[in-house]
Design a protein around this nucleic acid. Structure first.
Lengths: 358, 358
DNA sequence: CTGAAAGCGCTAACAC
DNA sequence: GTGTTAGCGCTTTCAG
């Protein structure tokens, strides 16, 4: 049994005022000097400062926040926090970007637990947060409704919704998917599958990445058929079965790097050589991609910069400066690594190096 | 120019009371039902709930916290947040551990900006936090002083200090270092250097790891000399110069994996083959170690579990249950990967496979 | 210059 | 059962 350490009671302004023999108002003015109406003589000011130091006075942030309706704290909502330690460094960069920007302006960052979408925003508008950054905010009617009924400042990150109820920061997913398809087509692939996991249907990133994939296929005049869509369990994608049911697939584009990794592992377990038998490309080029063997070719999004932009936009919003842009789209690039190459048994030799037309 | 969306004012209990035609106290009781003194008839309760729903009433957390002196929010202090996106996954696991545990009990997590040690604790005792988890808390007199003068609940993580002013969670660094030395000695190494970067002197982990290294050397009857200590710049360690000045070194043990990575890169740049010419071992076995080539042999600490323990201990402390243990030490294990092997020019063949005595 | 006083929104005695 | 009341610690008018 640990004998509880003496926890000294905390000092209030009132006590400081008493000690200094002045009014509470004077203490407030001197210590947090704002109101232009209250001037205090240097002499008294000094006495007050002394008293404060002597009593180890520490202003109470709650009281202040309550009074000012400002907490200088912003919240971060992200989906599937549970996966966080699971590989994808995405969250780290995101966090670093948000935090670095916030801290520069003396804001604090609160990580929020996952909350059912149905009550997310309203449950957050309890005065403790000046605003929130919502990663992967889904574009759902319920959310739209909350957004318009809430007084909370929100900015979406990695979100591109159909409304403009809040500023949104995202990367050019569509173009990113285009880069992937271009890359694969150029290598000689024609049967390029798109992989997604069950349960991510509402994720805006997935939607736009898929869109971009479809459009890119079209651009290359490659017809899309349902069997190119590989919907799987993110924990154990049954690649082998699917691949044998869908002969001819030579490349898989997974909508995020973690899924790509799982797919690669599953394929390898089944005896596939990557990239000889199957090329795999993912989205989100991070250190994780380098841990795979072969290393994963992937699209890089400037997540740290995006996160910073989100933080900056939110702070502007909070401080009353309507941001000039209501949405930012950051460019993506392709990091070619080892998991993509020419298809081994190129099916139609004549189409091998000439992916563009016919 | 974005036309600012109508931000509906927030509803207070008073308004709900008016709408329902009851007293504020009744509303409080019904909506957050605590005080056993106030009973409300089911009829009125219903009316109140209706009114609240109609007005989209959302209790104000600040007011509540102020009143109750409880915020259900805990803070996380970690050093060099700046390095966070830089490779080491350590922070991710840490964060995941803390957050998962906290969220289970409906606490929030606030990430704090780095603050000068001189004022850390006092500046945090402003009522907004119920407690903090302090990673790598240094064992400094200033800190000790603050700890005893503050009313804030603190638990240290990855810290082992000489006082018991707060509970501390750490891993068995000393034993970890022992594992490293044992491993290297068993491989035939005798000249094993310890690497640390400038500026980390106060970090408790470094200190105990170094201690463990010294003791292990002693255990193997290998004399320690100053030239076995490689003090370097963490951004660009000048391995080559140091190695030529200190002939005979066949292995380097870096006190954290990021440094090990840098050292490896630097050595490779200078033409060294790892592990043929030089074995390298680090602390903190994470995904990062797998991204290196060769993959880094490293000590694994159960950081996620440690973080959870820290969170749990802190919550217990906050909730008034003095934790039964004032400190926890978690065991470490060694993950042997590719960066360690027999020394190429084993100096004393007779000592090669018989590291224990003589 | 200075201090009294009115709250910010909520909880919990306490009296009815 | 119910409402009145006294704050939590701070900021800020406003009258002196």
């Amino acid at each position: 049994m640990m004998n509880r350490i003496e926890k000294p009671a905390t000092t209030t302004m009132k006590e400081v005022a008493q000690e200094a023999g002045v009014s509470i108002a004077a203490v407030s003015k001197v210590l947090h000097g704002k109101g232009p109406n209250i001037r205090v003589s240097e002499a008294r000011a000094e006495v007050i400062r002394e008293a404060a130091k002597k009593l180890r006075y520490q202003p109470n942030g709650l009281a202040r926040s309550l009074r000012m309706s400002r907490t200088h704290t912003i919240g971060l909502i992200w989906e599937n926090m549970a996966d966080i330690g699971d590989g994808p460094l995405y969250y780290m960069y995101l966090l670093d970007g948000v935090a670095s920007e916030l801290f520069r302006k003396h804001y604090r960052l609160t990580i929020l637990p996952e909350i059912p979408h149905s009550s997310t925003i309203s449950s957050l508008s309890d005065g403790r947060l000046d605003g929130v950054i919502w990663c992967k905010m889904p574009d759902l009617p319920g959310i739209r409704d909350q957004l318009s009924h809430s007084s909370l400042n929100v900015v979406g990150l990695n979100t591109q919704a159909t409304h403009s109820l809040c500023p949104m920061i995202t990367c050019d997913n569509e173009h990113g998917s285009g880069l992937v398809v271009d890359h694969l087509v150029e290598l000689g692939h024609r049967n390029i599958a798109f992989a997604q996991d069950w349960g991510s249907e509402d994720t805006p990133d997935l939607i736009t990445r898929y869109d971009g994939y479809r459009k890119a296929l079209q651009r290359h005049e490659i017809p899309f058929t349902e069997n190119l869509l590989f919907r799987c369990d993110k924990h154990k994608p049954e690649v082998e079965g699917w691949l044998t049911r869908n002969q001819g697939i030579t490349a898989i584009y997974a909508w995020y790097e973690g899924l790509a990794g799982k797919i690669m592992a599953s394929a390898q377990d089944a005896g596939y050589q990557i990239p000889r038998d199957l090329s795999i490309v993912g989205f989100d080029s991070t250190l994780y991609c380098d841990t795979l063997s072969p290393k994963l070719t992937a699209i890089r999004q400037p997540i740290r910069e995006m996160a910073q932009a989100a933080a900056r936009t939110l702070m502007d919003l909070i401080e009353g400066q309507a941001p000039d842009k209501t949405s930012y789209i950051f460019p993506c690039t392709l990091d070619v690594r080892e998991s993509s190459s020419h298809p081994a048994h190129s099916r139609a030799p004549e189409s091998q190096r000439r992916g563009n037309l016919l």
